[in-house]
Design a protein around this nucleic acid. Sequence first.
DNA 1: CTGTTAGCGCCTTCAA
DNA 2: TTGAAGGCGCTAACAG
Lengths: 331, 331
Amino acid sequence: MGTVSHVITGAVPVTDGLRSKVEAAIRELNYHPNHVARSLKTSKTRTLGIVVPDMTIPFFPQVISGAEAAARERGYVVIAVNSGDDGERQKELLSLLRSQRVEGILLVVASAPTPQTQISRILEAGIPIVCCDRVPERLRVDSVSVENREAGRLGFQHLLDAGYRRIAVATGPLALRNERQRLLGCREAADEAGIGLEPDLIWEGNLRVEDVTALCRDHLARPGRPEAILSTNGPTALGVLRAFRAHGLSTPRDMGFATFDELTVDEIFLPSITTIVQPSYEIGFRAAELLLERIEGGSAAAEPMMVRLPAVLKIRESSRPPDVLAASLKQ
Amino acid sequence: MGTVSHVITGAVPVTDGLRSKVEAAIRELNYHPNHVARSLKTSKTRTLGIVVPDMTIPFFPQVISGAEAAARERGYVVIAVNSGDDGERQKELLSLLRSQRVEGILLVVASAPTPQTQISRILEAGIPIVCCDRVPERLRVDSVSVENREAGRLGFQHLLDAGYRRIAVATGPLALRNERQRLLGCREAADEAGIGLEPDLIWEGNLRVEDVTALCRDHLARPGRPEAILSTNGPTALGVLRAFRAHGLSTPRDMGFATFDELTVDEIFLPSITTIVQPSYEIGFRAAELLLERIEGGSAAAEPMMVRLPAVLKIRESSRPPDVLAASLKQ
DNA sequence: CTGTTAGCGCCTTCAA
DNA sequence: TTGAAGGCGCTAACAG
C-alpha cells in the first residue's frame, strides 16, 4: 500500500484518520521500515563511512564522536571501521564502503602511502571523500586537520621559552606528512632561536609504543642527553615516558617534556604533562559537516576545501623552566 | 546477466575464459557490486551492529576492535554507534539498526535501566542480541562479560593482603549490575577478613570524571580518611586520582590505590598503578563469535549463553604494602 | 555451463 | 487524497 509510504515519509499529505490507523498498525505489527529496500529505490543510504587506522588510539574515537554528532544532526549514521594502518586493508574497506553504498567517506589514511588512484577513483564515481587528520600529498581532496606546522612551532617555542636549549623531537613516521609538518614547525622555531635542530635530536619512531620505548631507551643511553623532549603524538609520548621510567628519569626534574595529544590522564599525572591539544572532536565534526555539504549540495566541483584548525597549548608541570626548578630544589 | 553474479558469488561454476572476461570488465568499469540490492534479495546484510555508551571511554574501542576481528574472520562488518549512555538514544539506535537490517546486535546497555521489551522484541523478531560487559537483569539473553564479583574480590583481597585495612570502594552507579557485583565481591572479601565494609566507605559516583573528582574531594576532606581506595572502573579511577592531586595526596605514599581497567598509562604513571584488567578485546571477540553462531547456526533456541571471563590482577606500585613503604622511607 | 526471469520491499509516478 | 503499478540491482531457480 503506497499510503503507508506516504505516512512514513511524510512527503504526501494523508488524512488524520488514515494516518493514525496506519501508525497503530505499525506499532501493532512491530514494523520497521526496510532501509535496505528504501536505499535500493532511492539510492540514498544516509550513511557515512569513516576509516581510521586504529580505534584504540584515543585520538580517533574523539574524531569519530565528532563526526557522529554532525551526521546525526542531519539524520545520517556513521559506520566506523579500522584499517589497522594497513594499506591493503584500507583498500578493501574502501571497496566495502562503496559496496555498502555509503554516501560519503571520511578517511584517515594509513601510514603507508595511499595510491592516488585509490582515492581519485572513488571521487570520480561521485562519492565525496574528506580526509581527516592525515592529508595525503599531491591530491586534490577536501581535508580537515590541525595546523600542524604551527602546532609544532608552538610546542617547540614553548620549551625554548621555558629555558631549554638542547631539545629532542620524538616523532612518528616521517612518511606521514603530519609528522613532517610538525617537525618542520619545530625546526623553524629552532632556527629562529639560532640553535638549529641537529639530526641526532630527531628521533623518528613508528606508532607502536613498544618500539618507541626501545628507540628512546637507546637514545637516552647515549652521551649528550637532551634537556627536553617534544613528542609529536600520543603513542610516541607513551613510549618516551616509558623510556624515562626505564632509565629512572623523571620529568621535569631530569628532563623537560611536552607532547601532542592528551594522554587522558595528563592532569592527574604527577607531574602533569604539558600538551599540545588538537581539537579532535571538532576535526571530526567539521569534516562530517563538509562531507555532508558535498553530498547534499552536490558540489563535487569547486576547489577542495582545506580546513586547518589551531592546536592549543596546555602548559602544565612537565615543561617547568629548569632554572625555576633548580631554585625550588634549593629551598 | 546472471553469469556475472555467478562469477562474483562463486556459487555456480563458470568457464575460465568467461570468468576472466567478466573480471576484466569489472575492473574496466570500476564496478562495485551493490550490496544494498544484494541484501534486499537475499535478506542477508552480513552486518553486525554494536551499541556502546561512549566510544571515548578506552574500554569500549577495545571491545569493538575485538568484535570487528571476529566478524571479519567470517566476512561480516561491524557498524559501531554511541548511545551516549542515554536510554532514549539507545532505543532510537536499536530501531535504526533493525531498519538497517543488521543480522545481529552487540549491546552494551545504557546505565538507565533498559526496558525488557526493548530487547525482547528484537529477539522475537529473530534478530539475535548478545549483551557485552553490562548484563541486564532478569532477562534471558546471551551475554559476555567479566566475572565481576570475582574481580571485585580479587582487587579488594589484594589490598587487604598488602596490609591495608580501612579501604574505600569508589564505584560507578550502582544502578548497573556490573558495579553492584564488583562491590559485592569487595564486601565478601571484607567480610571474610572480618572487617566488613562500612557504608561510609562506599563512594558511589557516576561515570563522569568531573563529578567523581568532586565526590572524592569531598570524601577525602572528611575526617577518617581511608588507607586505600579501590576504584571499580576507568573513569572513576581518573576522578579519584584527580582528587588525590587536589588534596596533594600521592599514592601509595599517602594512600594505597588500585582500579579496574587500564588507564593506558598505568605502566608509566609514577608510581605505576595496580590494575584489575578486564579482557576487553576478548569480550568483544567472544561476543561477536557467539552472535555469529546464533545467526548462522540459527540457534535462537536453547539456553542463553552466559560467558564470564576472568579478570587479571596486575600488581604495580600504587598498592605497595604500607609497612614496606614505611620501612623504605626510614632508610 | 550459460542465459533468462521473477521477485526482494520500498518509493514515486500516475490515474482514479 | 488514495490506490495501483513499475522498477531500483541483485540472486536463485530454472530452462536451454
